[in-house]
Design a protein around this nucleic acid. Structure first.
Length: 458
RNA sequence: GCUCGGUUAGUUCAAGGAUAGAAUUGUUGGUUGUGACCCAACAGGUGGGAGUUCGAAUCUCUCACCGAGCCCCA
């Protein structure tokens, strides 16, 4: 009889995803690899609450935006909280709380689940994992260099090459200097310059030109911005301008870019890095060097990840000035990149039972004995599965074989009486009966044989 | 929020108004304590709602969801 009751939808909520074991295996594999890299650089993991007060996000952008594009919840007292759309404000809060106590520079990373109420699309979901790493309290450009190196190493550790991705960097201070000393743009229009440049890669040539003209009526400025968009290198860019004043060359922005270029060269990561004057990033709080990592191919147009330097991150929470540089990376976007270049090996998604022992029992009378045997094996930290069907040995071994188990243990009344077990090598069909005391040794022996056979095959 | 394309067993696909099929997966079995092949049985489906129609998986509308993009992107 079927009941006619309506069943609920099996799908997760819009923009959310169910992670089955095979999905989790891939995600974990990716995350572990990233973790290995940042821990080599001695970054420490932190994490904060999923809920935060709305103000700490609203302060950075308009409150409307936060309400429109965030999940927020109300507690029983009617207070509104936000499901974190990013973790940087939480980081700032946590640093501000203990800034006197924490040794600088601070190197921290986090892998928070974040939420944004937006239309899902390629590389973007409403619930997503983000990897963040930041250095705080290190003002020198070596911090930038380190962040670049970490970014590059994360990707190369997966096997990605300089042909597949590039770090495009710039400095907002450099744009400031160009604007101020060369283009004579008033300071209150700087934000507009950032905004226009941020658009430059997103809309095509003629439309962009129109957009620039609409934004700045001045012909000289318009030409200047177009030069910023087109320049392939620093020298190339500066060649396009006549009469560059000395103040420009003395400016913080110019020296920062040239210094950083030098550091990149010395660190031998020039192949991966490229100065690109139209990279500015959308975020308001960036003040210095900004960068984005792009897939160089056509398949993933979006940035894989990006970051930059922010000088007064703590300002929301304290008067103390701590400068930081960091990046945030969507794990989903990274996995798309890795998939594009086939950098996730097939075995990652598959469950591996090759180190697992399968215990099959002839009948239920030996169940207790079988459980004791399994515990013995687990005490050795060897994974062990018991088949509780106690049916035909045929079906039990068949199951073990299907799963890819390499060693099975067979237990019946005969073995139990003698305090023995039968141990079967599933690849060679060799089977022997031994005393319980020798079980573990026998298991290791078979594992060794299997490994040798494996080496021989290679 | 907008535009376009989708939605049929767990999965991949058929059926283009009348009986929804296959492959694969899953479960069980193929006789006493020995797996991989093979065989059999069983299980499992038209996203929700409304309309047109004698009759709708199929045509129309609508909602939901999925996908590609746009806007946005902390």
């Amino acid at each position: 009889m079927k009941d006619n009751q309506k069943k609920f939808s099996r799908l997760p909520l819009k923009g959310m995803k169910d992670f089955y074991p095979s999905d989790i295996r891939k995600i974990n594999w990716i995350i572990e690899q990233i973790r290995d890299i940042v821990e080599l650089y001695s970054y420490e993991e932190f994490l904060g609450p999923l809920l935060e007060p709305i103000e700490i996000y609203a302060a950075k952008s308009s409150e409307e935006l936060v309400y429109e594009q965030s999940y927020y919840i109300e507690d029983k007292k009617g207070r509104k909280f936000i499901l974190r759309p990013e973790i940087t404000p939480t980081l700032a809060r946590m640093i501000a709380r203990k800034s006197q106590e924490l040794k600088k520079p601070i190197r921290w990373y986090a892998i928070p689940t974040c939420y944004r109420y937006e239309a899902p699309q390629k590389g973007r979901r409403r619930e997503f994992l983000q990897f963040n790493a930041d250095i705080l309290g290190e003002d020198s450009l070596y911090a930038e260099l380190e962040i670049f190196k970490v970014s590059i190493e994360i990707l190369t550790s997966f096997g990605a090459t300089a042909k597949q991705f590039q770090v495009y960097y710039n400095s907002r201070r450099f744009i400031d200097a160009i604007s101020k000393y060369i283009l004579n743009i008033p300071e209150n229009k700087l934000a507009l310059v950032y905004k226009v440049l941020d658009k430059s890669d997103k809309i095509d040539g003629t439309e962009f030109e129109k957009y620039v003209i609409d934004s700045f009526q001045d012909e000289y400025v318009v030409q200047g911005i177009l030069k910023l968009k087109e320049a392939k290198s620093l020298e190339d860019l500066l060649k396009k301008f006549d009469n560059i004043p000395k103040e420009f060359y003395d400016s913080e922005g110019y020296t920062e870019i040239t210094e950083l270029g030098k550091l990149i060269k010395e660190a031998e990561i020039s192949d991966y890095c490229c100065f690109t004057p139209n990279i500015v990033r959308g975020l308001d709080y960036y003040t210095g060097v900004v960068y984005e990592v792009f897939d160089t191919g056509k398949e993933n147009v979006r940035a894989i990840f990006g970051g930059g330097r922010y000088d007064d991150l703590l300002s929301l929470f304290s008067d103390e000035r701590v400068s930081g540089i960091g990046f945030g990376m969507g794990v989903l976007m990274l996995s798309l990149f890795l998939k594009t270049y086939k950098l996730i090996p097939d075995f990652v998604g598959e469950n591996d039972y090759s180190d697992t022992i399968y215990v099959a029992s002839i009948n239920e009378k030996v169940a207790n004995y079988a459980i004791r045997i399994a515990d013995l094996i687990r005490e050795e930290e060897i994974p062990c599965i018991i088949d509780y069907r106690f049916k035909s040995l045929k079906s039990q071994l068949s199951k073990a074989s299907e799963m890819g188990v390499l060693i099975s243990i067979i237990i019946g009344p005969n073995e139990m009486e003698q305090n023995q077990v039968s141990i079967r090598n599933m690849t060679t069909n060799e089977q022997k009966t031994t005393d319980i005391g020798k079980l573990i040794d026998e298991i290791y022996k078979i594992f060794d044989e299997l490994e040798d056979a494996d080496d021989f095959n290679d």
